[in-house]
Write a protein that binds this DNA or RNA. Sequence first.
DNA 1: CAAATTTGTCAAGTTTCTTTACAAATGTCT
DNA 2: AGACATTTGTAAAGAAACTTGACAAATTTG
Lengths: 408, 408
Amino acid sequence: MSTHPGNDAASPSLESEYIAEVLSAVENRAGESRASIARLLGLSRTTSSKIVSQLIDLKLLVEKNLLREGRGRPGMLLDLDTSTWRAIGAEYHSGRWTFVETDLKGNILRTSSLKVARGADPDTFLDGLAKGLGEFSANATGELLPTFGVGAPGLVDCDRGVILRADDLGWKNVRVAEFVKKKLGAKVLLINRNRGAGLAEARFGAGRGVHQMVYIGIGTGISAAFMIDGKLVHGSLYSAGEIGHIAMDTQGPVCGCGKRGCLHVYASGWAIARRAAALMEQGRESSLAAGGKRSEPLTGEEVCVAAAAGDGLALECVQDAAAKLGLAVANIITTFNPDKVVIGGPIGLINGPLLDTLRAEAERWTMPHAFQAAKIERGALGESVGAIGGACLVLDRKLSLVASVRGR
Amino acid sequence: MSTHPGNDAASPSLESEYIAEVLSAVENRAGESRASIARLLGLSRTTSSKIVSQLIDLKLLVEKNLLREGRGRPGMLLDLDTSTWRAIGAEYHSGRWTFVETDLKGNILRTSSLKVARGADPDTFLDGLAKGLGEFSANATGELLPTFGVGAPGLVDCDRGVILRADDLGWKNVRVAEFVKKKLGAKVLLINRNRGAGLAEARFGAGRGVHQMVYIGIGTGISAAFMIDGKLVHGSLYSAGEIGHIAMDTQGPVCGCGKRGCLHVYASGWAIARRAAALMEQGRESSLAAGGKRSEPLTGEEVCVAAAAGDGLALECVQDAAAKLGLAVANIITTFNPDKVVIGGPIGLINGPLLDTLRAEAERWTMPHAFQAAKIERGALGESVGAIGGACLVLDRKLSLVASVRGR
DNA sequence: CAAATTTGTCAAGTTTCTTTACAAATGTCT
DNA sequence: AGACATTTGTAAAGAAACTTGACAAATTTG
């Protein structure tokens, strides 16, 4: 036994091209042993064993209990090592930074959040991120992977870590990665927050094990993420999934983008709130009007909650939105043929009438075989899903990150 | 020098994991030498050289002229060897089998076609395929890769080589691969003909070098193929791309599928022909009516040709179809953010007013940045593109196929 | 024409993976 | 219970693949 565990001179070499394959075999399947991995990847037991022991030394894998099945000596069950490495992810949403710390399996170990002025300027946004990351990472429960994953609003250049534009906030060219590098000396992997949420749901949530997944995030705006065989579809300029502005009706009302009949004007949180406010303005009764004059403007979430509680006006607004969403989802199902459609976002996660209407309308406008293939479900990771998505980006690179920490 | 070139005892071993990478480096780039490949893949010149000589022995690569650039000894320019190996692809379309023989670069060396009864039963269809393949492959101009690539109508199970269903023909579970295996003893790679066409355009046609491509095939029906980073998107049950039945207007006319307002009822060849016929029935004048009573029903292609020639009625029909196509393309661009949209199929390839209208309407219904990224162009491979797509499937596996022929 | 540079190949050396062998741990059959 | 078959994990020896270092060949530059 070594007296200096792990970090000593006899540290593993990490030269095999099969290391990543072995790791992902353990990650994506359950109940693998050294021998079963060897069979799976077409390697000898010796090689599999050697790689596994390297990964154990790196604290990426652990041996669990014995695998009793069939005859012969039982194998050692392998699993991701959740004891040591930690990933930190962040997401900005509604004027608030959310931070999560996860283990290698994406389990949330710790959360924190930091309020900044809603609709703030990019500088406030960036300062909040750096401050939050600095404080949050100081209290890590394990060894940190040396990169932060960040989910941001707007059109994101993932390669350069820049928010190219966030139209609803009026931002342009916000260089997030560069800022954090300067402020904290740490690397940032940036992604659009809804794409990050889709990634997280695909890896750890409602889309686990699904090969063709569509995530639809419904909040103030609407956008989607396409996960095909474990990979996120970015598109040419990172705007794949921006379904908020698909044209639903060429005769429809004018949208903020200048076009008519965008999905956004029918089904976003913004649209739901506006519609409810307009109906109340016309004198329609609703529980939403209780308490007289409001200080803050009505939100889509509030309307959805009221609808779930049975408010007639709210129900009407939500169901109309859900019907349009259902039609959009139908066309996405027809176009993509996914195995699963995951509905998320602040609006999508509310346990109300939205999902049933959406599902019924999606069925109405799709071919039966495509609809049956596509299970439509709510997201399973809750509110901080976007931050988990950031952590996912870090976890996807854990191998190279660990290698670089260990100073290969 | 060996007296038995290629096939003798000293045949190459094909064990390196870099063989495929070297081959695709030469394939997808131009002007590579042994040394430049070594740099590209991070290999030593020795290894690169060894692999290249193996590939030359296998007749997959050839040395061309010298590469004079910069100082130093010029490298040997490498290229795919077009002298030996041949791929055969087939496509069924409008009651006709088309066969193509290509070299490793997808160049068409020979074509043939075989008419079978239009709207024939599956048996006639299969007999025609086996007969055609048998005769066509007998006259090969080189050594055949031992597999045929076949583009077929309908929903195709690529793994098992079965047409699961072709609704417009009324077929179900047509086991193409099994039939050809029995009849000719040869393996078949089956694909939907429009997906095959998309594959071919991405590899050898208008989508060369494009990372995010959408192919839209417009014939009697409409369907699409999505090529993301060189890979075709199949979807969960191989129906990704079946955009003929996306809902364009919930108030629209009833479609054959039972729903309302499908793209198919507005913009397919079937729809264009029906619309033109209806207008003429109402007494509208058109060059299409010349020659009195017709024996065959009017086709969408005829209307498009008449529109290109300036016929007013035809122009109206084509432009209305193109406008709906443009709207559909707009939503696809918004959703996918492609670099290029390739318009193909019997209708899409006709050099008439369709493309301009489609492009204008697509621009009208997309965000500027997404539209600008997506160049909309006609297919570059002509009518037999589906058959070339079949050949593509074979070429994509050339390495393993050649290895198996050489009896590794 | 010499010097510098780059290519392609050979021989020798290193690393990685496999083969062969064996102890250890289990189920099965008698 | 005990012999036997089966499977796992590891170690030592061997094979295969890739790299290093060296060198002739082919070019540009000065």
